[in-house]
């Protein structure tokens, strides 16, 4: 388990609580001590999380123990069959996807996939998708349209793969093609940021009718480190950049980019995968049910208008 600096006191409390729960020979009023500690944990969690800076929130969104796409797929969907390959060059393990069922209804789920340990991270390139990943995603979107399945995308990517091989195989072209495809896809699309929504690589799965963010995630035009090295000329100014970029869910609701925040269990999704999954599945069921009844032409037109209007308030004639 990885522990972030600000999580330390909470981890200690959780361990104490666990110890007493398992200590049958506890001297004194065990139940009273447990509820005392539970109260303490709840209060401190609330306090710690209320004081998080945007940079802390970036760390939380990148927390190595957070549930990743396949964890959520496993917990919220049934009958998932993972499909492989872009039919052009290869299969990118940094993007996963395939048909599955959500509460008995068919969906096409597509997500960025980070690894859990070093070995898996190397295999999945730390979630930094290649053109093949984006093209596989697009192939699955086109299938979803053909077979009338709503699309659910799970965003969690530091950024698209920044290597020459990705450039040679058209990284920018692969991302752009997805934007074009999703803008007009004739099935409902629900987008959920489940971790780190990083730049164009995130947006390549990010056009939909509804944009959701889990409570402790971020979505940004560039990594704070990248933005800092561009604007401050030094990546060490990442905390300043994180604050300036307005990348937290409430910021993005205010900017009209995100529609809904999905709460996480106290302490974050990594503390309790099941509780996090339950909260997400509830939100997805709502959203898909609301979209299911919509006329498809009206839905695609509304999707266009949604993105067409983004940034309208950010421009004015002088």
């Amino acid at each position: 388990m990885a522990t972030l600096e600000f999580e330390r006191e909470l981890v200690k409390l959780r361990e104490d609580l666990e110890e007493i729960r398992e200590d049958r020979g506890f001297k004194g009023d065990r139940e009273a001590r447990i509820s005392e500690l539970e109260f303490e944990l709840k209060a401190r969690t609330t306090r710690v999380f209320a004081e998080l800076t945007p940079w802390d929130k970036v760390q939380l969104a990148r927390h190595p123990d957070r549930p990743h796409a396949l964890d959520f797929i496993d917990l919220i969907l049934t009958d998932f069959v993972e499909m492989h390959g872009d039919r052009h060059f290869g299969d990118d393990p940094a993007v996963v996807g395939g048909p599955a069922k959500l509460a008995g209804q068919r969906v096409m789920v597509i997500g960025h996939q980070k690894g859990r340990d070093t070995r898996e991270n190397v295999r999945r390139n730390f979630g930094m998708a290649s053109p093949e990943g984006f093209r596989k995603a697009r192939r699955l979107m086109v299938q979803a349209e053909k077979f009338g399945m709503p699309v659910v995308t799970l965003l969690d990517i530091p950024g698209a793969s920044p290597v020459l091989e990705a450039e040679e195989r058209g990284q920018a072209w692969a991302i752009a093609d997805n934007l074009l495809e999703m803008a007009g896809l004739r099935v409902p699309i629900v987008v959920v940021v489940i971790g780190e929504g990083g730049s164009g690589g995130a947006l390549a799965l990010g056009i939909g009718d509804r944009i959701l963010m889990l409570e402790h995630t971020v979505y940004s035009v560039a990594s704070p480190e990248g933005a800092a090295s561009i604007v401050w000329r030094d990546h060490k100014f990442a905390p300043e950049a994180a604050a300036a970029l307005k990348l937290t869910p409430p910021d993005l609701i205010e900017l009209g980019i995100v529609d809904r925040i999905v709460p996480e269990p106290p302490g974050g999704a990594h503390i309790d995968f099941d509780a996090a999954a339950e909260l997400l599945v509830g939100a997805l069921e709502d959203e898909l049910a609301a979209l299911a009844g919509r006329d498809i032409d009206a839905l695609v037109a509304a999707r266009y208008e949604k993105f067409r209007s983004m940034g309208r308030g950010a421009v004015a004639p002088v």
Binding site: A176, L179, L180, A183, G184, S199, G200, L203, G206, I207, Y219, S220, V221, A222, A227, I230, V231, A241, A244, L245, K246, L247, L252, L255, I257, R303, Y304, F307, R308, M310, G311, A314
Partner: peptide, 20 residues
């Protein structure tokens, strides 16, 4: 960078327009 996510969303907006 100074326009944050509103800048990223211009990719979506322009692409949607080009789709039409």
């Amino acid at each position: 960078m100074q326009e944050g996510m509103l800048s990223l969303m211009q990719m979506a907006k322009t692409s949607a327009a080009l789709r039409r």
